[in-house]
Structure formats: C-alpha cells, structure tokens
Design a protein around this nucleic acid. Structure first.
Length: 308
DNA sequence: GATGACGATTTTCCAAAGAG
DNA sequence: CTCTTTGGAAAATCGTCATC
C-alpha cells in the first residue's frame, strides 16, 4: 500500500529534510495541536501552499498564532510552492501584524503571500516586506533570546493558559489573581493582566497554599472578596503538585476546582486520591480553554462594535 | 462518522478607470 | 459630471484529510 501524500505534506517534509542539514536536533512538539517542530532552540510551525498562478494562501487560527508567539524563539515557516521559496518569519512579527490581516468569524486569519513573497496586509497595495525572511534558514540557528535557560513549550503553554484564564475572568467581571507575576503572556506580565496584586487572605483557608494556586477568580461583595473559581494547570510532563493546593478551598462550598490538562486519564487517576471532593473537580483540556478564550474575546469585540 | 485543522475556491465589496 | 465597467482585495464559504 502506497500512502498518498499530499503536495503540501510533501513540501513540509522537504522543509524538515532541509532543516536536518542545519541542525540534527529536530523533534515534533506534541502538546500543541498545530504542526510545530523543535529545531535546535527554535520552535517552528510549518505551513505549505501549493504552486499556482496566484498568491500563496494559508489559513491560520488566531489561537495558533498567539500560542506560537508566546513560545521561546518561535518562527512560522510559510513554504510557497517550493522549498526554495520559504518565508521563515518570527512568529511575533506575524502576531503584531494580525490586526492588518482579515479573518473569518471563527477567528481564522487569511494569510496571503504575494508571488514576490511579501505578506499581503489590509489596504490596497499594503505589504509587509519579507525580503529578509526569505529562505532565512540561519535565523533558526540564532537564539535571539540569548539567555542560557531555554523555556520549554510546556512552560510557555502553562503561562499562556494562565494568561487566557486571567483575561476570561476579567472579561466576566471577576477580580483575578495569579502568583506567577513575572511570567509573560502576549508581552505583558501576568501580574499586569491580573486585577489583584496580592492574594486576598481568606479566613478558612491556608494562605500559603491559596496564594500559590495558578489562577483564582474572586467576586466582590461589599468590601469582601469571595472566591469563585480556582484553576490548576498540569501539562503532560508536570508533577501534578497543584491539585492538592485546591483542597485548601474545601470550606468554600461554592468554589469549583478546575484542572487544565491534556491528560484525562491522569486526571481520573489523581482525582481518585481525593474521593471526598471528587465531584468538585472538573477536567478541561488546554484546547477547550483556547476555544473559550477565542469565543469570549470575539463576543466582547462584537459587543463593543455594535455598542450593545 | 463527527470534528477540526489546513488549504482552496467562490462571492462580495469597492474604488479607480473608462465611456458618453 | 455621472453612470458603468472592471480588477484586485477582502470576506465568506467550501473540500479534504487526519484523528478520535
């Protein structure tokens, strides 16, 4: 049986072959849904468009671009018909130009690259000059973020989910808190996204545990802050140390505990050790958080646009 | 066999050029 | 000057493949 390989899939394979000439440390990034590879210290999303008598077209979701832009040393490789015509653009550059690119109501951005390999932006004749990014293979080898410690995709995804949960909470009118103040999401620190700079002390919970919970939502009641939702994020390789922290909120019976994890089996396993509170835990996947974040943001935008 | 990611095509929109 | 044509850009919709 010969497996039928699509043209674009073949181009993506060509890309990996070419990349392996440069750098033999290549592996797929599994925790993300998109086709992302770790090439040396760079994280690269590979997309391909087949040759035709027109612009090169790529559909790409907002969530995907945002996730890429928040990784360590991220790039997006747009293969335009041939491996010799590849635009290797820093993900952050694309992310910063997203507001000049149209999208559908599902948040899917329409990436058009012209025949002379410039990124087409909104407005007549408006282009982002990509001359410097064409076949820019060497940029994958340079670690622009020249710090000794490399942030893993898992760590980045943890911060991304924290940032998204904080923003969703803010949009819904909650007071929000996260202990990881210096971590970043979309270039902003988590502490600047959260509305609370210090974790409120609660009468019936252990403050040392409470203030370490990944994300907390509170409701204002008079001068008091009432806990509403508590989130712990456990990406595959994590140690699941956070789950126990949530039980410090046991006495607040209205608070629901959410575990964001891509491993439902592990969740079921771990949760067995908390038989009494089992029904207070809910499992949510990182992809669901992305969908929710995207939807809440777009309805907020729509409300603003319509003025209702 | 339902769903979502990835690509591609079709339709709509709009402003500049052309005709009268 | 006004109405029509037209080509390219933007928006909307469609198709397919992999995955669960």
């Amino acid at each position: 049986m010969v497996k039928n390989i699509s043209n674009t899939e073949k181009l993506a394979q060509d890309f990996l072959k070419e990349a392996s000439q440069l750098q033999n440390n290549i592996e797929p990034v599994k925790v993300l849904k998109a086709r992302v590879y770790k090439i040396g210290n760079a994280n690269v999303l590979i997309r391909a468009a087949s040759e035709g008598n027109r612009n090169y077209f790529f559909g790409i979701n907002y969530i995907t671009v945002e996730e890429m832009a928040n990784l360590h040393n991220p790039f997006i490789a747009f293969i335009c018909g041939s491996i010799k015509r590849t635009v290797i653009i820093p993900a952050v550059v694309l992310f910063d130009n997203l507001n000049k690119i149209s999208h559908d109501r599902n948040g899917e951005y329409k990436i058009n690259i012209s025949r002379d390999l410039d990124l087409i932006l909104k407005g007549r004749g408006n282009r982002l000059n990509c001359g410097g990014y064409i076949n820019n293979w060497n940029s994958l080898l340079l670690d622009t973020n020249n710090k000794s410690k490399v942030i893993t995709v898992e760590e980045s995804l943890h911060s991304i989910i924290q940032g998204r949960l904080l923003e969703i909470g803010n949009l819904r009118g909650f007071q929000t808190f996260s202990p990881d103040k210096s971590k970043k999401f979309n270039k902003k620190t988590l502490s600047s996204i959260a509305t609370l700079s210090t974790c409120p002390e609660l009468q019936f919970s252990d403050y040392n545990l409470l203030r370490k919970i990944d994300v907390l939502w509170f409701k204002e009641k008079g001068s008091h802050l009432i806990p509403e939702k508590a989130f712990e994020i456990e990406i595959s390789t994590g140690t699941w140390s956070g789950v126990g922290r949530l039980s410090t909120l046991t006495d607040y019976s209205n608070v629901k505990f959410y575990i964001i994890s891509d491993n439902r089996n592990r969740f079921n396993q771990v949760i067995q050790s908390f038989p009494v509170y089992k029904e207070r835990f809910k499992h949510i996947t990182p992809i669901q958080i992305g969908d929710l974040y995207s939807a809440e943001k777009s309805i907020n935008e729509l409300r603003y646009k319509i003025g209702l």
